[in-house]
Design a protein around this nucleic acid. Structure first.
Lengths: 223, 223
DNA sequence: CATTGAATGCAAAGAATTTTGCATTTAGCT
DNA sequence: AGCTAAATGCAAAATTCTTTGCATTCAATG
């Protein structure tokens, strides 16, 4: 089992580096629910969440919106726009009052070249992201549906930075994130609920027994 | 659709940087099939393929060996051992005569700090890797089995650097890489063969009509 | 507090995938 | 050339997942 890393960029920066970075960019405040950027936007640069949370998603062809991820403060996004001429890959909007620091490509490059410690931190974040992505792909391939659901719940809790055990997520978003149908996710969640591990709500899933929930998947993978 | 990148580290380095890197590490020649490192090995550092190819895989609990990936010359591996205290995640062995340059953690760090152009190149490679991984996860979730198989064939061709259209791969490895059963992969391959797109062999798959093969999946995803 | 759209619960038919066991083919080896 | 282990082909049952349609529950809004 790969060790799970979660290294927000900001957590790796010294305080003077944080100041330098903040000074080099532009800080924007977004009200709850406001769009930060649309999918496909030509907006090269690095974005850093100074406070609040950012939710990512896509619109289906029918216009329905699916959330695919949530990042907590300290995390950065938009790395790919820096090196390839790529547009923003996801629609992003603010969850709660959120401040986002935007570094232009040039500002980022200057910081990257001048400050090896910044470069190092950025690299660590990227590596941790890469191995999380590989880990996720592994899960998609190897785990049972039930185990996938459980790990996704933990992932949301971890990366979203939720302290309490109530996760604001719809079953349909879980389904979309895992590439399965809503019905299947619902059934898996029901089974977990029947075992007293979670409690289902309306747009909400509550983790009742974190420990036993974690154990339930090590059992599965051990098979 | 995300643009597909494939940026081997070496392809991004100027020639003097290549020399500097080569001088900073230790070059080792591996005969065909020799083990470069085992999974779980505590071997921190960056490995760069100077010539030949490296195949990655894992042993199942029953002792069977599954190949999960193949890297061509110019690519690097082992990045995660640099920033987290992680062991080597995969078993790696040489395909053909292969020379691998090994940089210790310290040697890498020195190079990284002294040469911003090296840092930049390394970053680009990592980013391209990250987005390939995300793209792969997307494929696993959204595509039909047949489309998954086709894209995996292209992936192998691209990252493995195969010029001709004969890919040395077993159906069981395809199955393992995609997280499905060998039987299902076999059926999907048969359907593709029936349409004249590929030709199946023993431990080999030959791409007959690259263009139509590519079209066959854009049809599927367009649905 | 009634209305309404969204989210979830539920059930059954159909489709896709896995599992299992075995036959056949292939490449390497003696 | 014959032998052997590995890879592939094949088929049927069992399982899982999806699709579809609708009922129910929930929360926000006026």
């Amino acid at each position: 089992m790969r060790p799970v890393l979660n290294l927000p960029l900001m957590s790796l920066l010294s305080s003077d580096l944080v100041s330098a970075m903040t000074a080099a960019g532009r800080t924007i405040l977004f009200e709850d629910g406001r769009t930060i950027h649309a999918r496909g936007a030509d907006q090269p640069g690095l974005s850093v969440i100074l406070s609040g949370r950012v939710r990512f998603g896509v619109f289906s062809e029918e216009g329905a919106y699916y959330y695919t991820g949530l990042l907590n403060e300290g995390h950065c996004f938009g790395e790919a726009t820096l090196f390839a001429d790529m547009p923003r890959a996801y629609h992003a909007d603010a969850v709660g009052e959120t401040t986002v620091l935007s570094l232009t490509k040039t500002a980022f490059n200057r910081l990257f070249d001048d400050r090896p410690d910044f470069a190092r931190a950025f690299l660590s974040t990227l590596t941790s992201r890469l191995y999380e992505a590989l880990d996720f792909a592994d899960d998609l391939r190897r785990l049972s549906l039930e185990a996938k659901v459980v790990k996704q719940l933990f992932r949301i809790q971890r990366v979203g930075g939720f302290e309490d055990d109530s996760l604001p997520i719809r079953q349909i978003d879980l389904a979309y994130a895992l590439g399965v149908s809503r019905v299947s996710v619902g059934k898996a969640l029901e089974r977990l609920q029947a075992r007293g591990l979670i409690q289902l709500g309306y747009g909400e899933i509550r983790v009742l027994d974190r420990k036993r929930l974690a154990e339930s998947i090590t059992d599965k993978t051990g098979l």
